[in-house]
Structures are given as structure tokens and as C-alpha cells.
Amino acid sequence: MIKKKKISVSPLMIVLGVVLLIYVISLILPFCWALMSSVKDRLDFTLNPFGLPEEWLFSNYGDVFSKFAVPINNDTERIGFFQLIGNSLIYALGCAFLSALTPCIMAYAVAKFDYKFSKILYGVVIFTMILPIVGSTPSSINVLRSIGLYDTFWGVFLLKTHFLGTYFLVFHATFKNTPKDYSEAAYIDGGGNFTVLFRIVIPMIRNIFFTVMLLQFVAFWNDFNTPLIYMPNNPTLALGIYVMDNLNDNSFTIPMRLASCMIGLLPVLVLFLVFHERLLGKISMGGLKE
């Protein structure tokens, strides 16, 4: 105990503590500044970028909903804020569910059935993680175009329904470490493979599945790259905020842009506040941490 105390006040820890404190301040400062600037009017923002707002214009947040109009289809149509939120929900929920379910199902098959092909599949996952393939995006776009799914949600869902990557390893380790007693009892009672999977195994690993889905939801909610490349005419909120920030539309002021940014952050920050312990500690390559 005494030793531990000695360690926590060592010069290295003091220096690191100070550096971390400066880092945290550097994170909070732009956020607070953006929050404060989001309720200023244009002139106040230009003349007084650091001071408190002369008038607290909360109407900027209302203006985001009414003025947000992201051009699509070569500027022949525009879509508003609510539709962007809808697109984001469809995209993030759909992709999060599929990209959690696919590695989960595949990992279950590989972990449970000791076929040679299972070993090959495990090797494929490791191999694809090591092999750095660069520049296959044009080819993916062409494949989606050729099957008529480019610029659609279905195309992106199909693209994300893959089992490769870290989460396969997480699920694989989880299934390997899950006690087999319940499954075996179910088999003895006459249960089939599907009954065991859906009534016993999935409920047992629901926590880890939910955590993976949550992590994926946050990643897809924030993702602007995939919608930009694969479904430019179905923009999500993240892409919409980016497009609006880069339009030469003077009526959509910088404070309004920052307000749209704050609204976009809200769902993720709420999720993080509610589930931060789960997001920060419940997942490991070795499976589930209890």
C-alpha cells in the first residue's frame, strides 16, 4: 500500500498528470467556445469571438431545423434536417446491427464446429487483418453500380455485412469461453441447433453483442466517409453537416453551423454518458470482462 502511494507521487506521474490536465483543457476549451458561439448572432461572433454573447440567440438552434437544406442529385433537390436524422438512424442502426450480427454468427460457427473449414475461416480473418490492401474502393463502387445498389442503403448494408475484423475475434473468444453446460442440457432435452443458438447462446452473450452494436452505432452515426462515397444522394446527418459547412450560403451563419454541430453531437454524447462504463471496459480481445 505504502509502495503504491510512493508510485503515484513520482515525478513521472506528476508530469504526466499535468500534461493530461493541459490536454483535457485543450479538449474542453474549443467545445465550450463552440457551444457559446452557437448562440451568438453573426456580427457578435465576428467582432467578439471570445466574449460572452451580447444576446443569447437560442433561435439559432431553431434555424438549423428550418434552414438546413442539403443539395442532392446535382442540386436539383434539397433535403432537410429531419430527413438527415432519419437517414442517419436508418444507416447507423442497420449497419450497426448487421456488422455486429455477421461476425457474431460466423464466430459462433467457427468456434462451435471443429471443421477444417472453420480453421481456414479463422485464418482468413487474421490474414485480411495483416494484409494491407490499398485502393480497392473504386472496384467496390463499380461492383455496387453493376448490381444496381450504388447510392442505396441496401448497397451499403450489403457492404457492411462482413465478418472480417476485430469483432470476429472478440465474439470467437467469447464463444470459446462460454460454458457449454446449458447448450448440452438443451441438446439432451431434444433442442436443435437453432434452439440452442437463439434461446441459449445469444441470450448468454447479449451483453457483448449489445456493446459491439453500441460501438458500431456510434461509429456509423459519425461516419461521413461511407455515405459520401457510396450513397452521396442519401446523405446522413454527419455528411449533411459537412456539406452545409462547405456551402457558400451566407444566410447559414457560422453560429448556426456550430449549432447544427452541437445537435449532431447530442445523441452520441447521451449514449456515451449512459453507457461509458460499458464502452470503456466491457470488451476485450479475450472475450467478455465480468
Partner: peptide, 29 residues
């Protein structure tokens, strides 16, 4: 060490914030 839980949360925070939002705040700031 002192404040480790708080620092861990803060270090992770930029990872869950959209890069579009992070860039926008940083850029104007």
C-alpha cells in the same frame, strides 16, 4: 494515479465524437 477515471473518459471522448464535428469546432477555433 490521480483522476485516472476522469482522464480515461476524456481521452476516449474524441473517439466517439464525429470527426466532422471535431474538425468544425477545431477549425473555427
Amino acid at each position: 494515479s490521480f483522476g485516472h477515471k476522469f482522464f480515461q473518459v476524456m481521452l476516449f471522448l474524441p473517439s466517439i465524437v464525429s470527426s466532422v464535428a471535431m474538425v468544425m469546432m477545431f477549425k473555427y477555433f
